[in-house]
């Protein structure tokens, strides 16, 4: 049993030797895997990192504040296209990424503020409309290739070429890792608490001095910004983006990741992103049966563990804590 002697100990993201082992193993695996697996798997692992970012962003919005979004592919698209435009105008890589993040954040305000009065299914429909609108706008916008799409180059930063799958993987890992760390910090901070408060009891949240409009919009902005960053990383990864690629199905897939992983827990979003990306990869060899199997597996997971993968992990941890008593 772990004894906490200082309040600072409780603020640590990783607490106890067991957690350090898990975090250490995961870190080592992420760092070492590109050298252990085949080339195309490195591509898929990068895709996992990008999807994990979107799942995390959605987890902040849906899991913490309870605002459902069915339009996150829209933010991903916004990030990807702003990145392309920025690089076409000669912006250096990191500034182009920053532009993608900022524009997506602004879109977050644009969607978040009118959505303040919407809840549950109504908000889901509004965000769904946003996703479709983004797709529609991009399809008709000549500047970015319209429906034919556009090529996206991988960057060269300070003379280092990130063209190779492995090199690009580490670039994405660094950026995604940093942002993941920031989001985990956010979750355990007073802001994360306030997000949950608006979800659980909005009257009491207001009497605790929490402005509902401010925090609900803030959640939208943070979520959109992170999804935008994911978009900026996604474009160069796939190399060629079309409006068609950012469809409703993708938005639903992101939502699926957060729910299967465990709603309300950020680590759950990581597990969910891993699970869904992995499942996609495995099923891509099945061809005609892949859709059906995908659906069946997801239904089975949700039936066996409604709290998601992370919820199951918490139960297992609880069990072993008191074992063998």
């Amino acid at each position: 049993m772990l004894f906490r002697e200082r309040y600072e100990h409780e603020l640590r993201l990783v607490r106890g030797s067991q957690a350090w082992v898990v975090a250490g193993l995961a870190g080592a695996l992420l760092l070492a895997l590109p050298f252990l697996v085949k080339g195309y798997l490195v591509y898929n692992m990068t895709l996992f990192l990008v999807y994990a970012l979107v799942a995390l962003s959605l987890s902040v919005l849906v899991g913490l504040t309870g605002q459902v979004s069915l339009g996150h592919a829209g933010f991903l698209a916004a990030g990807a296209y702003v990145f392309v435009l920025a690089t076409q105008h000669g912006l250096p890589y990191l500034l182009a990424v920053l532009a993608a993040v900022l524009v997506s954040a602004v879109l977050g305000v644009v969607i978040g503020v009118p959505s303040l009065r919407l809840e549950g299914p109504y908000l889901a429909i509004a965000t769904l409309g946003f996703g479709l609108a983004v797709q529609q706008i991009l399809t008709n916008w000549r500047l970015v290739g319209a429906s034919r799409g556009t090529l996206v180059d991988r960057p060269v930063i300070l003379g280092i070429d990130f063209y190779g799958d492995r090199a690009y993987y580490y670039l994405v890992l660094a950026l995604a890792g940093f942002v993941t760390w920031m989001l985990f910090n956010l979750e355990r901070s007073h802001v994360g608490r306030a997000f949950r408060a608006t979800r659980d009891a909005d009257l009491a949240a207001q009497m605790s001095g929490i402005g509902l409009a401010r925090y609900k919009t803030l959640a939208f902005v943070i979520s959109a910004a992170v999804a935008g960053l994911a978009g900026a990383l996604y474009g160069p990864l796939v190399g060629y983006i079309t409006p068609e690629g950012f469809n409703l199905l993708l938005s639903i897939k992101f939502l699926l990741m957060t729910v299967v992983g465990g709603l309300g827990f950020l680590p759950g979003a990581l597990l969910g992103a891993g699970f869904i990306t992995g499942l996609d990869l495995v099923l891509s060899t099945f061809r005609s049966w892949s859709q059906l199997t995908f659906g069946a597996v997801v239904i089975a997971v949700m039936m066996l563990e409604p709290a998601g993968l992370y919820g199951r992990w918490l139960k297992i941890k609880q069990f072993w804590k008191s074992w063998p008593l």
């Binding site: 910090n185 901070s189 007073h190 949950r196 408060a197 659980d200 009491a204």
Partner: peptide, 30 residues
């Protein structure tokens, strides 16, 4: 009207929310 899914400690910390002076960025960067 408690924050039902949170712990007793978190509920009290939320009660103290208006005394928190830090902003979002310092929270995210810890």
């Amino acid at each position: 009207e408690l924050f039902k899914s949170l712990t007793c400690l978190d509920n009290l910390l939320l009660g103290r929310h208006l005394h928190v002076k830090s902003n979002v960025f310092s929270a995210m960067l810890s």
